Simulated assay, not measured.
Amino acid sequence: MIEGTSLNINSLIGGDEKAFQAFFVDYYPVLVSFAMKYLENQETAEDVVQDVFVKIWETREKLGGIDNLPAYLYQMVRFKSFNYLRTEKIRQDATKFFTEELEVTEINEYIRNETFRIIMHALEDLPLGSRNVFSRAIQGYSAKEIADELGIAVETVKKQKQVARRILKEKLGNLLSLFFLVG
């Protein structure tokens, strides 16, 4: 017999469902109340206690080696409550991290797209010669390659790049130096 109940531990170990049901009815309410001290959520406390009873049923053959089953139950509920809190904290931290990371990524993507749009708009406003030279320069072409491709002198390429930089700097300010480090 378990102290304070009419449960015969041997009946429970033997798989007597009625004995288990009586055991459950005796301890479930007090264990949920006990779990609430840690979890502060009725539904979660009930889930934890139900998990404990499932574990008790699944391992009932080992219950004979437990000296104080009620104390063991309370210990299991406490352990499972702490496990739940630890898992929940990890889940919340991970969710927070990924949410913040996603927000930063989305913001960076927005900034990148908007900057590209502004720069492309500014490039379209350049005089044709400067636009042709500068667009090739930002693609990595050297002054000589640009001059050869456009059939103009290298000095003209340099002059057109200067004109483009001046106009873009007026329109874009420091934004130009962040994205076009063109020599």
Rank of each mutant, 00 (worst) to 15 (best):
A94Q: 09
Q162D: 08
K144M: 03
I119Q: 12
A164E: 05
P29W: 00
E149N: 13
R117Y: 03
D16V: 02
V32S: 03
T115I: 00
E40Y: 07
M76C: 09
V32D: 10
E61M: 10
T95K: 13
I146A: 02
E40I: 01
I66E: 03
K169Q: 13
E3G: 02
I119V: 14
A22Q: 13
L168Q: 06
F98M: 06
A71C: 02
K55T: 10
N108L: 10
Q92I: 09
K96S: 07
D47C: 02
Q50C: 01
E124G: 13
K96D: 11
F20C: 04
L126S: 05
G140R: 06
A71S: 11
G183I: 01
E61I: 10
L150R: 08
Q50A: 05
L181F: 06
L7F: 04
E145M: 10
N10A: 07
V54W: 02
E46R: 13
L178P: 00
A153Y: 00
K161L: 05
I111Y: 08
L172A: 06
A137N: 06
R91T: 12
N10T: 09
A164W: 04
I107R: 15
E40G: 01
L175E: 05
A19G: 15
N68G: 00
N113S: 13
N8A: 06
S130Q: 04
E170C: 00
R60I: 02
R60Y: 01
Q21V: 00
S177H: 08
T95E: 15
L172E: 06
K96E: 08
L39G: 03
I111N: 14
E114A: 10
V48F: 05
R165W: 01
T156E: 14
E145T: 06
R117V: 01
Y38C: 08
M76W: 07
G151Y: 07
E170D: 15
L39P: 07
L102A: 12
S142E: 08
L12R: 07
L126T: 02
A164Y: 02
M76D: 07
I107P: 01
G4D: 14
E170F: 08
E88W: 03
V133L: 03
I152F: 04
V49A: 05
E58N: 13
Q21Y: 03
A153L: 02
L73H: 11
L31A: 06
R166K: 14
L172D: 07
F82R: 11
V32L: 01
A122R: 08
E109M: 03
F179T: 07
Y141L: 12
L128I: 04
A35W: 03
G64F: 01
E40L: 13
I146W: 05
E114T: 12
A122C: 11
E103V: 04
I13Q: 14
E103L: 09
F97M: 12
A122H: 08
Q75P: 01
E155T: 13
L31S: 05
Y141E: 14
Q162V: 04
Q75A: 14
R131C: 03
E43P: 01
I90S: 05
R60H: 04
E106H: 06
K159H: 12
L123E: 12
N8H: 09
Q160D: 15
I9Y: 04
Y110P: 00
F34M: 04
L150V: 03
Y74T: 02
L178N: 11
V104H: 05
L7E: 13
